[in-house]
């Protein structure tokens, strides 16, 4: 973990790190990664990854409309919206 890596993952995360906090963040992340590195000592060669403790396939259900359309209510809580869309700064000139 170094300054360059932190810059890359900050951009991937769409986060800007304050320059005065940068040194501490590099150090914290470096310690955390060193801490989780102990997993490398475990032999997992024939072990399937466990992504979810249930390991059950989600049940299918009939394709029926069950929820109310909340378009108006959802657009009302947006920072900026018109009657149909969320509004953001212009993307295409």
């Amino acid at each position: 973990m170094d300054k360059k890596t932190v810059t890359t993952i900050s951009y991937l995360s769409r986060l800007k790190i304050d320059s005065e906090k940068e040194q501490k963040i590099v150090k914290d992340l470096d310690n955390i990664i060193k801490f989780v590195d102990q997993l490398n000592d475990v032999d997992t060669s024939s072990i399937e990854p466990l992504t979810n403790p249930l390991e059950k396939t989600a049940k299918t259900r009939k394709d029926e409309v069950t929820a109310k359309n909340l378009k108006k209510e959802l657009l009302e809580v947006a920072p900026s919206a018109n009657e149909d869309y969320f509004l953001v700064p212009r993307v295409v000139e």
Binding site: L29, L39, L50
Partner: peptide
């Protein structure tokens, strides 16, 4: 940031997949 790191290309198997195996 940790999440983005362990999921990024080149580290996915070393961290995320490994942790799921453990």
């Amino acid at each position: 940031l940790i999440g983005s790191y362990v999921l990024s290309a080149g580290y996915y198997d070393a961290y995320y997949k490994k942790a799921q195996q453990v």
